[in-house]
Amino acid sequence: MTGTALLPGASPTVAALAVIGLVLVEAALLYVAYGVLEDRLAPTVFKRIQRR
C-alpha cells in the first residue's frame, strides 16, 4: 500500500507528507509502547540473566 493508495486523489506532495507523518506517528508510538514494555519487563529480564 503506497501513499497514493492511502489518500486517493491527493497531490503528490500531500501524499508524501502523509507517508512521512504516518511513519513519524508509528515511530513515536512504537518508541513509547516499547518504552513502557521495557520499564515493566527489563528488571525481570535482568534478574533472570544475572541468575544464570
Binding site: 503506497t2 508524501a16 507517508v19 512521512i20
Partner: peptide, 30 residues
C-alpha cells in the same frame, strides 16, 4: 525525511513494508 519526501512524491513507498520493518526495528534499536 528528505529522501522519503522525494520518493513519497513519486508514490513508490510501500507503507506495509515500512510498518513491518519498523515494528521489529523499534525493539531492535532500543
Amino acid at each position: 525525511a528528505v529522501g522519503a519526501f522525494t520518493y513519497g512524491r513519486a508514490g513508490v513507498i510501500d507503507v506495509g513494508i515500512v510498518t513491518a520493518l519498523l515494528i521489529g526495528s523499534a525493539l531492535g534499536a532500543r
